[in-house]
Design a protein around this nucleic acid. Structure first.
Lengths: 332, 332
DNA sequence: ATGAAAGCGCTAACAA
DNA sequence: TTGTTAGCGCTTTCAT
């Protein structure tokens, strides 16, 4: 039989209130003697408090929901890991959900999370879907957003990355290295992320008196196959480029693979610059020069922010803006 | 103010018992009229039942714990995804934990999970740590193990992969392809996984009348840097090999990168065979031939098994053994 | 077909 | 310093 606080109280000859106080370190006026005794019995009986019962009265579960599109996308493991580490450090657990960017799944999960009485929710998306976010506005739980800057009234916190500067730094570096004809394989322009990176790219060109040409930019999706396809498009248009700035590392890998297959040398014939710095970036040959997103930190900071909001009702600094970093390797 | 079952009952002019029955589809003798009415009010008021309160009485949380070493290791995302998909299909949520293979973290998390009243726990490790598993035996929750075959009395289910056959298939293929001097970069021999793969490797050699030599096998760890180091060891011993069977894909990638750096051509000078088929295997150049582990399926099946055990007390088939598959690409 | 009431295991006023 | 007691929101048995 499961043993409860009552059993401990009986055994110790005290009331459950006393045991509860000891359990919750509201010790201040409990005699050392009974404290010791109760603690002893707890250990001896291997008693584990039932947090479900506790949550019912305290109205908090020490649990948060983490909603991402797909853990299988190499962008997310680090982020999730960061989130989990932070949660764990603050005594919280994480419910983990994959939405595949599907609005139905998203709604279903959010409802599940609310039913499970999570204390707050963290929300990430890789791609904007331009559907309505009405259902998010129904939710009366603290929420923080990662990586996207949409306006939902009841979002109380955001963790964003400076994509503009990231792209700007990367492309500037490419130019300094002597590359002059830099193509940009972009993600969808429906995302602010992509738009910001495009602006950073443009600014770098402009500052170096390189004329910006539409044809050097191809818009696609943040997916594996897009890199190859994009190169094919570029080539079919007979565009000559000596470097490619890719909207993320997976795209870069796919582009690189294809370029090698058609006999190009990297970085001699064409330089490749990625974005994200996923785990594999350093393991491929040549290792990928890329703009490192602080994914782990994003996850960590988001949870930290959320917990602050949960515990204080609001955040001192509700917008965390993280910086990127250029990681130079052999592909440029 | 949060709205409760009482509010719904009042509004509808019925008792909470009635509402509860309707909520839980114990409808059988509730008049259609009140059913409709109650359901209407629930929708109108946007009522969401509090599962915490429910769990307190039903003694089940519809929640399971998933304990893995590190989501950042490319082996796990697919597995986790499979687990999550299955859980979600059965109406369960997943608490997600990373232990880094540290016994203290493991204990801490398991306790947290028990406190949170999970209905069951799934347990994965990449490397055996030979410490005691006493603490696992204290746990009176259904548990299922993935990928390792240790004996813990209260483990009620296991999902295993046939490593012996995987290695055997892979190495046999290498031999068929004409490779004769096949090195094996192994993981730690403290793991059954590694031992099984070694046996598979030996069997393939033997069947093809290739003499097995100790020196062709190097034992290390399932980590990124090991591939390069292993090749260095092999070379420093002046061992000539025309193919390398790597204990996992990360090792293979690292080995491949190093071999290319020292001027070897793959697959001409040396063939590379990996193990796992991680996401990146197909994206690198040359794409990696590897033995595909059914990671997604492992996660999925493990959760399915666990839920069966949770709901029926035991599993009809407590041991699920999954097969591997050889995926031929360009590295051989 | 519906409701009254007990109780799940815990916390937190308030009393003593 | 400790105990009494009233819930938290729900399910479930047993009456009605």
């Amino acid at each position: 039989m499961k043993i409860t606080i009552k059993d401990i109280a009986n055994e110790a000859g005290v009331s459950t209130a006393t045991v509860s106080k000891i359990l919750n370190k509201k010790d201040h006026n409990i005699s050392e003697k009974t404290r010791k005794k109760v603690l002893g019995i707890i250990k001896e009986k291997n008693y584990i408090p039932n947090t479900v019962a506790r949550s019912l009265v305290t109205k908090q579960t020490k649990t948060i929901g983490l909603v991402i599109p797909d853990i299988t996308n190499p962008f997310f493991p680090e982020l999730v890991r960061g989130a989990e580490d932070c949660a764990s450090a603050y005594g919280y657990n994480i419910f983990f959900c994959n939405t595949d960017d599907k609005i139905e799944k998203e709604e279903k999960y959010i409802n599940m999370l609310v039913e499970k009485m999570v204390d707050g929710i963290i929300f990430t998306q890789s791609a904007n879907n331009n559907e309505e976010f009405n259902h998010l506005n129904q939710i009366r739980k603290p929420m923080v957003l990662i990586d996207r800057d949409i306006d939902i009234p009841n979002i109380k916190g955001k963790v964003l990355v400076d994509n503009f500067n990231g792209a700007y730094k990367g492309v500037s570096y490419l130019i300094r290295k002597g590359y002059k004809e830099i193509a940009f394989i972009s993600g969808p322009f429906s995302t602010k992320t992509s738009l910001d990176r495009l602006e950073g790219y443009k600014k770098a060109l402009k500052e170096n008196d390189i004329f910006f040409e539409d044809t050097f930019v191809v818009e696609g999706e943040y997916k594996e196959g897009w890199g190859k396809k994009a190169i094919e498009i570029l080539m079919s248009k007979n565009i000559s480029f000596d470097a490619v700035f890719c909207a993320n590392d997976i795209i870069a890998l796919s582009a690189m693979k294809f370029l090698k297959e058609v006999g190009m040398c990297i970085p001699e014939d064409v330089g490749i610059l990625g974005y994200d710095d996923i785990y594999m970036a350093k393991l491929i040959e040549p290792a990928l020069t890329t703009i490192s997103q602080p994914n782990y930190k994003m996850g960590y900071e988001a949870v930290k922010l959320l917990i602050e909001i949960i515990e204080n009702g609001k955040a001192k600094e509700p917008l965390v803006r993280l910086n990127t970093e250029l990681v130079v390797r052999q592909s440029t």
